[in-house]
Each structure stands twice: as C-alpha cells, then as structure tokens.
C-alpha cells in the first residue's frame, strides 16, 4: 500500500533511473537535430536539480539562479559531454558545485531551513483522497523531520541523484569522504525505524 501511494507522484518523485533514461534520450534527440528535445531534457531534469540544489540551504531565488546557470553551462558545454547517458550526472554535478559555491558565499542561504517554516498544509486533493491520505503524509513528513539535519540534506541529494559521486558530496556537505556511505546507511536506518514507529512500514 505504501509504495503504490508513494509512486503516484509527479516527475520529481519518479525513481531517478527513469529520469536519467529520459534525459539521455532527450539529449540524443537534441544532438540528432530535434530542437524541442532540449525542452524535454529541461522538463525531465529541472525538478531533480531543484531538490538537489535546495539541499544546500539556498533560498528559492538563489536556487533558481543556480539552476539557470546550470542550464546555460550545459548548452555552452554540451560538446564536452561525450557519453550522452551521463548527461543527468553532469547536470547534477554542475548544479551541486555551483550551489556549494553560492552557499559558501554571503547570505543567500536561509537562516533556518526554509522548508521547516513551510506550513504543513495538505495540498488540494480531490474529494475521494482524503483525511486518511493527509494523515499518512503527516506521518511520512514527521519521520523525515525527526532525522538530524545532515541526514535530511544527505538523503535529499542521494534520493534525487543517481549514484552521486561521494568525494564531491563529502567536501560539499562537510563530511569525511569515508563517512558518506556509512552516514547514508545510518540515516536510512534511522528513517526506517521512524517509519516503523509511525506505522508506515
């Protein structure tokens, strides 16, 4: 039951593998001379870039600037991406580097996690999806909220990325390289316990 609800999400909720394959296909079509394929690539990858960049605690405007400069860099540098299947990884890596650079600089990060201030209002739902669904979502949110901040940031990047490169993640999130894998494992285990306690697993 839980997985069926979880997968009925928008693009960003898709497993990264599907998004990555769509992106590679769009890049191939763009190279083959279909200008509209660039729109498809941007549509597939922008939600992923949003979530990855927001894990660096940038406010919405700063995050949008980073995503835009990522797309401009992509158009300018596309000739250097030889393996079209790697385009998703190239985009997220470029966006993470830029997000990290901006987040180290002056005051464009949110003082407290902006996401935590967002009201936990249920999205508009059709009548038949209901209180049960809203309760369930609250429990999922609560489980993620209960994680330490470094877990939330790391898991957000890892969840939307496809096999992120640990070395760059480590320096960007201020963790030793060797600790990324174990930290990810501990964070996932904590989330699992929280979901079990919330009755969601």
């Amino acid at each position: 039951m839980s997985s069926s609800t979880i997968t009925e999400r928008g693009d960003a909720g898709q497993s990264p593998g599907g998004v990555w394959a769509q992106s590679a296909d769009a890049f191939d079509r763009w190279i083959a001379g279909d200008p509209s394929a660039l729109d498809d690539l941007v549509r597939a990858m922008t939600p992923v870039l949003w979530h990855v960049v927001r894990a660096y605690r940038l406010d919405a405007d700063a995050a949008e600037d980073v995503i835009q400069s990522t797309w401009l860099a992509f158009v300018r540098s596309s000739a250097t991406i030889l393996d079209t299947a790697a385009v998703g990884g190239w985009l997220t890596m470029t966006a993470r580097r830029e997000a990290w650079r901006v987040s180290k600089g002056a005051g464009r990060t949110t003082p407290t996690d902006e996401e935590e201030l967002a009201p936990h209002l249920p999205r508009q739902r059709s009548a038949e999806t209901d209180v049960v669904e809203a309760d369930r979502r609250d429990r999922l949110w609560g489980a993620v909220d209960g994680l330490p901040e470094r877990c939330r940031r790391l898991l957000r990047v890892v969840a939307f990325e496809n096999r992120p490169d640990y070395a760059s993640l480590a320096s960007e999130l201020g963790m030793p390289i060797g600790s990324i894998g174990p930290t990810r494992g501990r964070c996932l285990a904590k989330l699992r316990v929280a979901l079990i306690e919330a009755g969601e697993l």
């Binding site: 997985s3 979880i6 999400r9 690539l41 927001r54 949110w141 939307f160 996932l188």
Partner: peptide, 28 residues
C-alpha cells in the same frame, strides 16, 4: 523504498515552484 519516501516528502513539502520548468526551458 526509503529513498522514495524521501522523494515524496520533499516533493510535497518543497515542490518545484510554479513556472520554474517553463522559465528554464526559455533560458536554455
């Protein structure tokens, strides 16, 4: 499954802003 929970939570709570995809398509 854990990672899909993380995705669905962030998708709900910090969704991609309206119009972002369109603006990025125009820029690209």
């Amino acid at each position: 499954l854990m990672l899909s929970v993380v995705r669905s939570v962030y998708d709900d709570r910090d969704p991609v802003p309206d119009g972002l995809v369109t603006r990025m398509q125009a820029a690209a």
